[in-house]
Amino acid sequence: MIARLLKKNHSTEYEELLEQIAQGQPLPTDELEDETRPMAQAANWLAQRRAALDPRPGYVRASRQRLVARLQARGGKRPWLHRHWGDIAWWQHPLAHLALVMLLVASAFLSASRLAVASRAWLPGDLLYPLKPMAEQAALLASLTKEGDAQLHIEFAHRRLIEAQSLVFENRYEQLPAAVADFDRHVSQAVILVNQMAGDQQDEARSLATELQQALSGQMGMLMLLTNLTPDASQAEFQRLLMISEDGVSDLRNVLTPDGGDAQHQGWKVTPRVSMHWLGEG
């Protein structure tokens, strides 16, 4: 039944029905099919309670005046970093491109393999660490296929996890947020690419999805263990790592079970286990 519902989930009528509810239109009870009724009623239950979350009267206008006055008092100026970089990713900045070229020239004088091996030990906060993401970005630029990109994102996500664990072992908790944010970015990119590949490269997509799913679930045991070992201030970062891993595994179910994702109800679960291969590398 779940498979049928998920197929229904992609059907136009079902999407249109949910869109109507999301836009606050009344639920057309008579026209509902048996399979869609439970979901539509749950959606409608939520939509009907929207008013309970409305801001109090006058709040928006008053807070707008407050915000505008606050910004005008600053002369509409933004902090220097944001004014010049905003939230632009550092690798999109012209200076980063220049640095990348310099890195490529420098790497011509160094053995690529030695650099790669040496960089494995570098952790966020280390003097040479900035070279590591630069080299990773260069590898991504050099990759010409989605499969290659996805493979690299999986590898880099793995590196961030190992780095997060190493940071805890070295009591360098202040660097954890950067590793977690980058882990999130690589997992998201890998999941998006694998889902995109699922349409026309099913076998490759499934193989990558399996690899990523095993990589993510394989680390959960260790992450749960470390969550209990870290101080309170850093536990949130580990919980976020776990959440990102769970999200990533969840998003891959479509690729791994294209019949409609019955896996959730067939007992498919993330099995926390420690990957000796990964631990060995770390």
Partner: peptide, 10 residues
């Protein structure tokens, strides 16, 4: 930060 398809399934 997901694909639209993944959001529909979610």
């Amino acid at each position: 930060r997901r694909s639209a398809g993944a959001v529909r399934v979610l």
